[in-house]
Amino acid sequence: MAAHLRLGVFKFASCDGCQLQLLDAQGKLLEIARHLDIAHFPEARSAVGEGPYDIGLVEGSITTPADAERIQEIRRQCRYLVTIGACATSGGIQALRNWGQIDSFVSAVYATPAFISTLATSTPIADHVPVDFELRGCPIDVRQLVELITSFVLGRKPRVPSTSVCVECKARGTVCVAVAQGIPCLGPVTQAGCGAICPAHGRECFGCFGPSEPANLVSLTGQYERQGTPPEQLIRLTRSFNAQSPAFRAESDRLEGASHE
């Protein structure tokens, strides 16, 4: 019976919001606990079950030398390793440091910079160890998390679409904020999963699920520029929670390069 499957939840540089989504599964949480032994989940229980684990959920990005080593051991302990959220999957908002000078950040923030041991970059888990599956989002979507766990318990592939947020927008009948209000929205190049929450509340998608497949950013930002959005706003839009995702990174760098010409 599936009840012997062991789950571990691990945290790196992150805000804990994705782990909280697991607790937010509410009614489903008890059902999940019937099928999985939640062996390691420091956010939620003080008992620490040693590895190995059948499935490890990893939140957060790698920002310190110690974490770069810790993820190696976690990988060894997990049969399946799944990154949860923008930090683990693309480096998170803290990857903005990748465009700056780490020494100047450290000396600006900490009274005694010598005590700080940090890396110059924030990088996704997949830059360090092989990852079996990614759950996108900032934070992840609880329905996608339940789908992931369900598929794992039932032994099938998780159904997590790689299509654009526009698919979800149209499915719920939301009026497009880009077309009807001229708001620059990243939905057409962002992976679905959130249920198009932001457009449904009259604001733009800001790309927290990372780039969709494909993601034609040059065409989209070009359209917004022609409609009057300043390049600086488009750089900020593409350089946020998934700034380090290759497609978003390439576009924010391209826009920045073009605006300096």
Binding site: S164, C166, A171, G187, N216, V218, S219
Partner: peptide, 13 residues
Amino acid sequence: ATRCLSCTNCTLV
């Protein structure tokens, strides 16, 4: 294809 986003809006509307 250089302009199209493959976003699906045309087909869904």
